[in-house]
């Protein structure tokens, strides 16, 4: 093939990414730039004007409510991330590695996804009759005479938010890890056994490193969703737990566009740093 035809082919195939580029520019790049811009606008009680000011930024970092929301978001994110990993990894290990039959492992993954057949809000709200003071867990524990007084910390606390989020997002951790584990050549594990390694060694030296890209992808999924959360915290904390997402919802609701934009920019930066940090752990380009 001559250089000319290669070049014209390359030019021809460039068109394929055009719809994607247009879409991302219109609905991601432009809005993000807009948010950055609006965060410097001047906000008065009933009005907003494009006069540049740092007022909203100063207000964010000087108010305990806003910085508190930032730390709560980071704390809940870390706890939920750890929980989804602790619950998700063994599950993925079972589904992806120990289940020998491919059919059974697919069936098990589908079962993990079944909760998603109902809507997000229903899944969140279903925790209320479960965790409440007169909810299922308390009733059962009382009937079994394990407790005499209902446990009140179960609902409308940070705990209930963590429980709700862990349940919803766990499957996003299980999926990618199970996928990576399923791709491990069984002969490799047998080779390690043959060389005298026990299960613990094989897990830490072979299985875990090879599943790491799955862990990173799962962690990115969970992180992006948890950091942007507002519905679970709203529904299960009784407004006591305020995440950055909740701040944005409240600010937009009261037409405080500048403050909402500041919070949005901060949230976007946090997410960007988290994703960048995860991508440094493994070279996904090479591993997937």
């Amino acid at each position: 093939m001559t250089d000319v035809t290669v070049a014209s082919k390359r030019r021809g195939s460039t068109w394929l990414i055009l719809p994607g580029v247009v879409w991302m520019a219109l609905f991601m790049v432009v809005p993000i730039l807009m948010i950055c811009y609006v965060s410097f606008w001047t906000q008065t009680t009933f009005n907003i004007s494009p006069t540049p000011t740092l007022a909203s930024w100063k207000q964010f970092f000087s108010s305990d409510t806003y910085t508190g929301a930032l730390w709560t978001t980071v704390r809940i994110w870390l706890i939920v991330l750890a929980m989804t990993f602790i619950i998700g990894y063994p599950t993925a290990l079972f589904v992806g590695l120990f289940v020998k039959s491919k059919t059974l492992s697919t069936v098990l993954l589908v079962i993990c996804v079944i909760p998603f057949w109902t809507s997000f809000l229903i899944r969140v709200l279903a925790w209320r009759p479960m965790l409440g003071k007169e909810g299922a867990i308390n009733i059962i524990l009382q009937k079994l005479h394990i407790i005499s007084q209902p446990i009140e910390v179960l609902l409308f606390t940070e705990l209930s938010v963590v429980i709700g989020m862990t349940q919803i997002y766990c499957v996003f951790m299980v999926g990618p890890i199970a996928f990576m584990l399923g791709r491990i050549d069984r002969n490799i594990i047998e080779a390690a056994r043959d060389l005298g390694a026990g299960f613990g060694r094989i897990f830490w030296k072979i299985i875990f490193p090879l599943s790491l890209p799955g862990v990173v992808v799962g962690a990115i999924f969970v992180s992006v969703m948890v950091l942007g959360e507002f519905a679970t915290s709203g529904a299960l904390s009784g407004r006591k737990v305020n995440l950055l997402g909740n701040i944005i919802v409240t600010q937009v609701g009261s037409l405080k566009w500048a403050m909402a934009s500041v919070t949005g920019v901060i949230l976007t930066v946090v997410m960007g740093m988290v994703i960048a940090a995860f991508l440094r752990i493994v070279d996904l380009k090479q591993e997937l």
């Binding site: 050549d185 002969n187 490799i188 047998e190 080779a191 390690a192 056994r193 043959d194 060389l195 005298g196 390694a197 026990g198 072979i206």
Partner: peptide
């Protein structure tokens, strides 16, 4: 297997 001390070379090599 890991306590037998018998070497095994796999058809697909099974390198790590």
């Amino acid at each position: 297997a890991h306590e037998r001390g018998i070497g095994f070379v796999f058809q697909n090599f099974a390198l790590f």
